[in-house]
Write a protein that binds this DNA or RNA. Sequence first.
DNA 1: TGACGTCAAGATCCG
DNA 2: CGGATCTTGACGTCA
Length: 417
Amino acid sequence: MKIGYACLALAVPGSEMKSCTLKNAARDRLLSLTEYNLDALAHLIDYNIRNGILLFRISSDLIPFGSATAKDLPWERIFASKLTAIGQKFQNSGMRVSMHPGQYTVLNSPDESVARRSVEDLLYHDKVLSSLGLGREHKIVLHLGGAYGDKTQAKARFISRYRELNPSVRSRLVLENDDRLFHIGDVLETAGAEGVPVIFDTLHNSANPCDTSVSDADWIRRCSSTWLEDDGPQKIHYSQQHPDRKPGAHSESIGIDAFLKLYHQLAGIDLDIMLEVKDKNLSALKCINTVSNRGMSALETEWGRYKYSVLEHSPALYQGIRTLLKDKSEYPALEMYHMVEEAMGSPLLPGTAVNAAQHVWGYFRNSASESEQARFQNALGKFAAGESDLQPVKNLLNRLAKKYNENYLLNAYYFSI
DNA sequence: TGACGTCAAGATCCG
DNA sequence: CGGATCTTGACGTCA
């Protein structure tokens, strides 16, 4: 069982990818961005390993315009040593990775040029994974595509295009149910005919159900037979509905109780769970730390990252978690995350937000210049007076954290959630 | 023709 | 000038 997150992480300095617009996509620019992004990826993988996160989706933006403008740049040769080094990190840690072309990669399009570019895009994704030395259990996740008014014909067109793909792409491809057109029944039918493994996406299934009398756990069991030995363990996508947004929109964070409910129904299945959620690595760590005992130090590290976020919402819960973690003989992960969720779900009051900002300011009180002091007091005063929101205060503190290299703060979630 | 979704680049505004 | 805040880009399908 591995639990992971997609593409980018919050509060991991040095892991941010860069891109550019098409009109600036000259060869040199693309190569320097690629080099930068490979270094960022290496940082992110190191973070994942340090934190016991062994499932990860690599961003398609790793090589900017990798399937079009940069298609013929020999990046895999130019950066062979960097790619090999990253591949070694996966190998040594046992990390499983995947990639997921976006909604604009449509293999079954009736437009031949769209389909052709989709094939190029799949070749690009396969080239990234192969250049990292990764085997076929490291998957490329795709949706069936468009319906064009005739789902039966659209499925048939997917199958015939799939058969024309090169063997390496085909060996990595897995199909996922989407949130509007092709539900899990469509995907099982289409993929089943071709021996393509199926990823069950819980939120897509609730937005676009096939049969509401079948539970998530049952759909997952039905998909398990599509995963053969060489494909690695079955994978699913797990996410929760955003409370205020339209059906299918991902939540800010994974609610731990709902996650555990499904998790316990899946006991005994060898399953990898990709979380799709706004707070990315934060929810991955929450789930990982809750389902296995990773030691008190792991919880203390997490608390260090959450503490100022909790403090600004609720001093009472801040004190409560401090007390909870004093007993070193226990592993109160679930209780801690319950309290974190309760705090983050409560409204941000100006008084407690000012208090938390002053705590963070304490890191710079002695080192900050006079003008920095004045700017902080000015920004905080404006917020306290209701003349602006908190973001300028946090931006200022974030800049100071970078300038004075306060790593404890740079790794905290305070600037990210 | 706009919405959809995603994120950062790029542009512009502001003190 | 640096920083904050808006707008654009890049993709294809569907209403």
